[in-house]
Amino acid sequence: MSLSQAGAHREAGVPLIEALDPRTRLIAAVFLAVAIVSLNGFAAKAGALAFAVALIFMARIDPQLLMRRLAHIEGFMAVLLVLLPLTVEGRALASLGPLSISDRGLERAIHIVLTVNAAAMTALALLGALEPIRLGRAMAALGVSERFVRLVMFIARYQGIFSSEIRRQFDSMRARGFRSSLRRQAFRAYGNLAGMILVRSIERAERVDEAMRCRGFSGRFPLRRVRPMTGADARFALLATIAAIALHALDRLA
């Protein structure tokens, strides 16, 4: 898994979302996330999920990638989904010994599944295929601190390098007979691995720093100017706004 390859999941052709300005995608993603998590009723949340699915189609997200992402999130939420029906007070729908599934708990769990998946799919559709460089440029153009943007760009650039270094080092540990266990030696080996990666990273940082200075780095990267927004951005902004208003109207009425 590498951030520098994160933008490479697209299929051929230019999906609708891909034609948008990264700034539009970033603002729309945050705006829609806030709109979705502030919904209350079941109907509106189901509507949000339907809208998120439509965005996924607009972005032509690879179905396998979508499934992997959602599986990961569901894995995280398994705890809440199992515990809520069992622990929230309410009318018992079914019971097995001391355990009983309450109606209110089950309802809470279903609500959370809808909201979390709708928000995750919206973010994936809008931002999933956005390369870190374009994300950084968009943040800078939106007035985010230039230092923070530089931090984001550096991390995106070097994370993949360190991830493959970790994998390489772990492979060579195993080639020398290392086996993961709960013994002291195993933890020592992992500690040494982490330490070695940190030592190498600071040595790499020194080389990078020197190289940057040799090239006359003055503390600021020339961030390429962003293109002006187009009609597609205006149309998408309108679509996102209408969707948010419609979902909240549905929430009030239902």
Binding site: F154, I155, I161, S180, A194, R204
Partner: peptide, 30 residues
Amino acid sequence: GLRRLDEQQIPRVAILAAAFFALSLFSIPI
């Protein structure tokens, strides 16, 4: 945190942060 950061430290902090990030993505098989 950003204000306290020296202009010249940014590459070092960023590359260390990338290393920590990569380490956190590595799953220790336990």
